[in-house]
Design a protein around this nucleic acid. Structure first.
Lengths: 339, 339
DNA sequence: CTGAAAGCGCTTACAG
DNA sequence: CTGAAAGCGCTTACAG
């Protein structure tokens, strides 16, 4: 592939390389006639400035890194979509990394090599030891969705409150045998949700039975298996709270396969209010935020951090937005006890 | 942010910059003792080579561009996930672009600036005028999912056949009043599916009524509105074929809102066999490919093209894989005529 | 308003 | 096995 450089443009336009560069960066500083000639040469040669060379000297790449949970979880698909679009609209490219690609340490090493201007992370564990490395990298970072215990800049939801709202909703419907299905609790969102659930259950003096609680790896097989196990005990739960909608929808799949009716036989609910939860065939009760995309808000503030970088001191960014409960058909009055 | 360069490493290790570079690129060519010292210095300084500088001289970036349809369509979420992971595993970074970000011309301009090693495109229109520019860019390109009329390297499904299989399935169930809901027909997949549908209907001498066919912009509102319109005519269809599962699931949402039962009142089916289609609450009949991810196959071959680049002539990559029909509960015997 | 020159951080012949 | 030097394509003071 032949690379057209600014030197080639300069030759054709009959000027110096510096002038070509100026036309690109501060066109008002070059004489209109000359500018026109350069523009024509650029067009004629289909010249595109080499970003690598530019960022080498400019010390900025106009690129941000997004480290996201898997797109198989709709929550991350939605936020990734929004972030990439938002960044693009504001002149930034997004390099997307998924947690499945390797340890955060390896990913950070790569990111550092690319000299991105900023980092968005939605999938760091609550006590992930790599936190320090990110914080010390000198690259502006914002955590969204999942937080780290140390704090830092973050945009998240009040997940404790969210879980309390959801749990009270189920108690209000008369449920007492409530099960809890969750992914690993070393993740802030899942941990906080569990905490909120437990707190309300304790307040209400409703015991949380051990056989009703399952912490699992979030894949369809595990959900299938544990849902089955949950419902095949002597006294099965009348309601299931899932750590997020993705899990809830998978569990719902299992419940329906078993011939159970929702909510007649068992109620189910989740968190995040992903798009599918509102579908008529799903109608999953969920708690999330309406009209507030954490990813986009995080991107917006990341750009502020990047641009204010050399200026005055950095503001501290800590958003904990209020959740909303969306009651749908998947939760109903507790089935009359009759086991 | 302080940038540690290979010069700093050289100073600490007491050697030249070239040696540092050699340790990184061809460690076997430097004396073990010296190599060890350099490695220690790299570790001590937390040195990460600057990718921009490297690609400037190496004339390759180990980066591919993926231009994808929106992640709001699960098909694209699934393929993006796979591609990024596959590329990562093989030493390539992926820059993700979405068609919504601007014209393909603008996106190509950006991509050229980044000097990516290869391009994967899943969202080009059948007669998109930018095709030439991509083909002439000198950058290896593979089209997957949607094809361009000119061909080029592509990985796709036999969509005509897919539509024929699906249509015959509905005819076999006794349906004669079959509606067709599709996104724009300037997209190969949608165009070919429509073609296959029409061909089978003609063969079977079943007229395709004009009021049963709607071409729409694929957003929830449009689907909602047209589904409503479809079912509120004097003789509503007994089955609806949708151009893809995303549309079908949205239309299903509308049907259920209207109080219709699937498939008792109306059957519905789609294409792509996305993950959600298999969910017990959805059970959408669909035609797609099992165990064959076009995105991943495309990525695999793109890397072959990139690596064979300077070698012998390029092979022509043209995959048209066979579809499979997944019959689920959303299609059933045609309702007894009684309008 | 414009050009020559230095330099960003790297790799790769070229000598030795 | 190793270092000095040239060069990748750009931007940005510095003179004029």
């Amino acid at each position: 592939m032949i690379i057209v450089s600014s030197k080639d443009v300069a030759k054709l336009a009959g000027c110096s390389q510096s002038t070509v560069s100026r036309v690109l960066n501060r066109p008002e500083t070059v004489h209109p006639d000359k500018r026109e000639k350069v523009l024509q040469a650029i067009e004629a040669l289909q010249y595109k400035p080499n970003i690598a060379a530019r960022s080498l000297v400019a010390k900025r790449t106009n690129t941000i890194a997004l480290i996201s949970g898997t797109l198989r979880n709709d929550y991350f698909a939605e936020s990734t979509d929004r972030i990439v679009e938002y960044a693009s609209k504001h002149g930034y490219r997004t390099m997307v990394y998924f947690e499945s690609e390797g340890s955060l340490g390896d990913i950070l090493a790569q990111i550092k090599s690319y000299k991105v201007d900023g980092i968005l992370i939605s999938c760091m564990k609550l006590d992930d030891p790599h936190y320090e490395a990110f914080a010390a990298s000198g690259i502006p970072c914002i955590w969204f969705n999942r937080r780290h215990r140390r704090g830092g800049h973050y945009v998240s939801m009040d997940n404790v409150l969210a879980a309390k709202m959801l749990t009270r909703h189920l108690l209000d419907l008369g449920h007492r045998r409530i099960a809890y299905l969750s992914g690993p609790l070393d993740i802030s969102t899942l941990y906080e949700r569990w905490t909120g659930f437990e707190a309300v259950m304790r307040e209400a003096s409703v015991p949380v039975r051990e056989s009703y609680v399952h912490i699992l790896e979030p894949n369809d097989q595990a959900v299938q298996k544990l849902t089955w196990k949950l419902m095949h005990q002597p006294e099965p739960p009348t309601a299931i709270v899932c750590g997020n909608d993705e899990l809830a929808i998978a569990s719902m799949d299992a419940l329906l396969s078993m011939g159970l009716r929702i909510p007649a036989d068992v109620s189910i609910a989740g968190f995040d209010d992903i798009r599918m939860s509102g579908h008529q065939a799903i109608q999953l009760t969920s708690v999330g935020q309406h009209r507030f995309d954490m990813g986009e808000v995080a991107a917006e503030h990341l750009m502020m951090l990047i641009e204010a970088k050399d200026g005055q001191e950095q503001p501290s960014i800590q958003f904990l937005c209020k959740p909303e409960l969306f009651v749908r058909r998947s939760t109903g009055v507790a089935r009359t006890e009759k086991n």
